[in-house]
Amino acid sequence: MIDVRRGADRYTGGDRAAGITTRHAFSFGEHYDPDNLRFGPLLACNEESLAAGAGFDEHPHSHTEIVTWVVGGELTHRDSTGAVSLVRPGDVQHFGAGSGARHVERNDGPVALRFVQTWLAPLTAPQSLPPSYTLVKGIADSTPYAVPAAGAVLHVRRPGAGERVAVPTAPRVYVHVVRGDLRLDGEELGPGDSARITDEKDLELVAGSPGELLIWELP
């Protein structure tokens, strides 16, 4: 089954007065949708926009694996594991909250910051997981990034016009289009669109223009 969700239908939240805009793909915070709580372990896929100088002050998380992909600008990250990082386009940031951790996310740069943040639920009880932090600089298309705690694997793909991208064969696959125009099984996908794929084989994405995709292979 292929369930296409349009970026235009995302719920828009955040605090615009503070320079924060968030577009949610799933039920989140004040936006409660009982029919759209999760897709396998995937709990959230938020498109975040932070104006220069804006950010999220220190706040807690637990029992959540948080993976961040910067689209434009630079993200300043600080957390209670002691990690302090500047995350740029092409980097994969993974913050495992474990049994409990705190972090700060800010745009300390002079230009607007855009990033996609995915939240996943771990497979084991939170009390058994210590907090963790990983930053992969400049990840290549051919290098998958595994999130073992959630049994998930992230594939970053940047196809050129006319190129084909094989969709992993897995019980569930989540595709998020960062940029570009693509076609999946007759459906046209554009920036902000996503596809939730269940029990499908031999699927391909065909790029109509140069694109960038986040593809999650899920249990």
Results as ranks from 00 to 15, higher is better:
M1F: 14
M1G: 14
M1E: 13
V4C: 03
R6D: 06
G14A: 08
D15Y: 12
A17S: 14
G19K: 14
H24E: 12
H31M: 11
D33K: 03
F39M: 02
G40I: 00
P41M: 10
E47D: 11
G55N: 06
H63D: 15
V67P: 00
T68W: 01
G72S: 14
L75Q: 01
T81Q: 08
A83G: 08
S85T: 15
V87K: 02
V87D: 02
R88T: 06
R88V: 07
P89W: 00
D91T: 10
D91K: 01
V92H: 04
G96P: 13
G98K: 02
G100T: 10
R106N: 08
N107A: 07
D108W: 11
V111K: 11
V111F: 08
A112M: 13
R114M: 11
F115L: 09
L120K: 02
T124P: 07
A125M: 14
P126R: 07
Q127G: 10
P131D: 09
P131K: 05
G138W: 10
I139P: 01
A140P: 00
P144G: 06
Y145T: 06
V147P: 00
R157W: 04
R158A: 07
R158P: 07
G160R: 03
G160S: 06
A161W: 08
A166Y: 13
T169A: 13
T169D: 13
R172D: 08
H176P: 02
R183L: 13
D185W: 03
L189E: 01
P191H: 05
D193Q: 09
D193S: 05
S194C: 13
S194I: 07
D199W: 14
E200N: 06
K201C: 14
L203T: 02
E204A: 14
A207E: 05
L213C: 09
L214W: 01
I215V: 11
P219T: 10
